[in-house]
Simulated assay, not measured.
Amino acid sequence: MQKNEPRLRDQVRAVIRVNRYSIRTEKSYWYWIRFFIRFQNMKHPREMGAREVNEFLTWLAVRRNVAAATQAQALNALVFQYDKVLDKPMGDIGEVIRSKKPRKLPVVLTHDEAMAIINRLGETDRLIASLLYGAGLRITEACRLRIKDLDFQQQVVTVRDGKGAKDRTTLLPAPLLAPLQCHIDTIRKAWREQDKAFLHPVSLPFALARKYPNAGRTLEWQWLFPSPSISTDNLGNVVRHHRHITSVQKAVRNAVKQAGIGKQAGCHTFRHTFATELLKRGTDIRTVQDLLGHSDLRTTQIYTHVLGQGFAGVRSPLG
């Protein structure tokens, strides 16, 4: 490390936030960067390069038997570190043994099973799970919705900074219009009356917080599903964050047990079910791809295999 140079973690954090990557991406990238450094006996990445990265990725596939997507995620983190943070592009890392761990088909629910789980949740968690199933949202995307992200007139949900730092729009289900309007009216009333829950601003994206420090007190930037407790943001300010993802995941797991559904289902299962239900009802796969926010159609095509439609309509000679 050069004299007076910031710690590597601080450098990584600064570059990620300038590029407006999500907090989950930040945590994931730092996990793999730290893992790489420990694997290479705590050498600083500046002292290493393509050869060491090749060794690490090959070890993940051969010795750890990670999935192909996990190996790719580790590579993305290390490429980001060298290209964006250290300004030392790796170039060609040579032949890497690719992970051959087979990708499992996702677990999906029937419509009745999905509704049985949703109906066993408390009011707020029921709204969140309904958006997972009815709009195909990821749990992080649902919890991070703000009031301004719902367009009731067009019946559209705008997902900001989704996976890959991309924005997209998806369906706002008609059955949720009234419950969500009522939910927002409750937030609006408390906001106008300056309820103690609004004594502190909501947390904001890093760049926006610096440019518009008062935006966190406006109604449109309020979280749709705020956390019941306050916390501190990345700048050390006391703020209100969105509902914690793990609390929703725990509630859904409990509801799955109560519903007696013998499947390994969780929050993400609702998104899988959204996709399969749309395809089952004749929705074009390109439209499903857009609604899910998949950059590669092959990711969406996994759901055709779940439905047994992966053979271009070929019928068995048995009938």
Rank of each mutant, 00 (worst) to 15 (best):
A255N: 06
G308Q: 12
R210L: 14
L121Q: 07
P226Y: 00
V15E: 12
K280T: 15
R51I: 14
R103S: 13
G164N: 06
R217W: 12
V53P: 02
L121C: 13
I97W: 04
V202Q: 06
A50N: 02
R210C: 04
K196C: 03
T140S: 14
V256A: 06
I118Q: 00
L86R: 07
I139A: 03
Y31E: 07
R63T: 13
Y133D: 04
N254D: 13
F152D: 00
R103C: 00
F152V: 03
F152P: 00
F80R: 01
K280R: 15
Q301R: 06
K84Y: 10
A174E: 15
E277F: 05
I184E: 07
I261H: 05
Q11M: 13
Y212P: 00
E123K: 10
R46D: 14
T246F: 06
V256H: 00
H111T: 12
L307Q: 14
E193M: 06
I16R: 10
K84C: 12
R98A: 15
I187A: 05
V159P: 00
F270P: 02
R46Q: 14
D284C: 11
F270V: 01
N237V: 01
F80W: 06
A69R: 07
V15C: 07
D284Y: 10
V314H: 15
T158Y: 04
S203Q: 11
I302H: 13
G216Y: 10
I37D: 12
I33F: 06
I128A: 01
E5N: 02
G164R: 11
Y303P: 02
L199S: 09
V96I: 15
L121E: 04
A265C: 11
G94A: 03
V157Q: 08
L172Y: 00
K43E: 09
R281H: 15
Q194A: 05
R13F: 12
Q222L: 07
L177N: 03
N65C: 04
A114L: 07
K263N: 11
F35V: 04
P6H: 07
K27I: 10
L57C: 07
I230G: 00
L224M: 02
D149A: 03
N65H: 14
A61C: 09
T58K: 10
P89V: 12
L199E: 09
A74Q: 06
Y212W: 10
R103T: 13
E52A: 08
S247D: 02
L180A: 04
N237M: 08
D290H: 10
W223A: 03
W30D: 06
K257C: 00
A215L: 15
L208E: 13
K43Y: 08
N237P: 02
P89G: 11
V18D: 07
Q309N: 13
N119L: 04
P179A: 02
E141H: 04
G319V: 03
S247C: 06
Q249R: 10
Y31C: 12
K211F: 08
W221A: 03
T58C: 11
G91D: 04
K88T: 09
D233F: 09
